[in-house]
Amino acid sequence: MSERKPTLRERQRSETRHAIQTHAVRLFTDRGYDAVTVADVAEAAGVSAMTVYRHFPTKEDLVLVDQPARLIAERVAASAADEPVVRRVGGALVEAAAELTGVAASAAGERFLLDCLRLMVATPALRARHLDSQYALQEVVVDALGCDTTDPEAVFRARAATSACLAAMHTALTRWADDDGRTSLPDLIARALDAGAGGNG
C-alpha cells in the first residue's frame, strides 16, 4: 500500500510552519530568546501574529522540533519485539540521529537543530519546556514499544529503560552542541548508551 501524498493545503501549511520556525530560531539566536517577541517573528516571516499562534500556540513551541519524535517512534515500532527494550530504543535513537544529521541531511537542517539545541540549553523557559517534551517523547516511545498496558510492571520497566536511553541521548546532544556539530551525533549517542550500560564508552 503506497503512502498517501500530502495535499496542496497540507504542503502549504507545512511550508508556512517551517518558514515561521526558521525565522524564529534565527532571531532568537541573533538577538536572544527573551529580546524577541512573537510580533517580531511574524514580521520576519511575513505573516500575522495570529498565523504564528495558529502553528505554534506558545513562544516556546517555536524552538521545539517535532520530526525526531516521529522518526524515533517509527524505528522503535519497526524493531524486533523480542529484543531488549534498551536495545530497541537505543537503536532507534542512533538511527534517527543518523537520518537527521547524515549525508542525506542538509547543512542548513543540521545547523537549525544545533541552534534549537543551544537555545534550549541556554534559556531557562526553554529548558523547562524541553523537559516536558522529553516526557512526551518517553510516552510516545513506550506506546511504540507495544508493551502490555494491562501489566503495570511491564509498563514500569519500559518507562525506566526508555528514560535511561533518553538521558543518554540528552548527554550526547549536549556534547554535540558543545562541539558545534563536528562530532558524529549517532556515534556520541551510541557511546553514551554504552557508558550508561557500564561499558567504557
Rank of each mutant, 00 (worst) to 15 (best):
V121C: 09
A154F: 00
W176C: 06
R54N: 11
G199Q: 07
A128P: 01
S163H: 11
S163K: 10
V103C: 08
W176D: 02
A197K: 05
A190M: 06
D132A: 12
I20P: 03
P124W: 07
A92S: 03
A122V: 09
F156S: 12
A35Q: 15
E110C: 11
R129Y: 10
D179A: 15
Q67W: 08
S79Q: 02
A195M: 10
T58D: 06
V94H: 09
R88W: 02
P68R: 06
I20Q: 03
R111Q: 15
D30N: 07
T101G: 04
I72C: 10
Y135K: 15
P68L: 06
S48V: 02
D187A: 14
S79H: 01
V141F: 05
G201A: 15
A98S: 13
E74W: 05
E3L: 13
A104M: 10
A73V: 04
R17G: 01
L166P: 07
M120F: 00
V41L: 05
L145T: 00
L71R: 11
P57F: 12
A97K: 01
H18P: 00
A197Q: 12
T162F: 05
V65W: 12
P6Q: 07
L93T: 01
L137P: 04
T123S: 09
P68H: 06
V47W: 07
R31D: 09
V52D: 10
S106V: 03
R127V: 01
S48F: 02
L173Y: 15
V47R: 08
R75M: 07
M50I: 06
V38T: 14
D179R: 14
L100S: 02
D178P: 07
G109T: 01
L64W: 14
S106M: 04
A108D: 15
D187Y: 02
R111A: 15
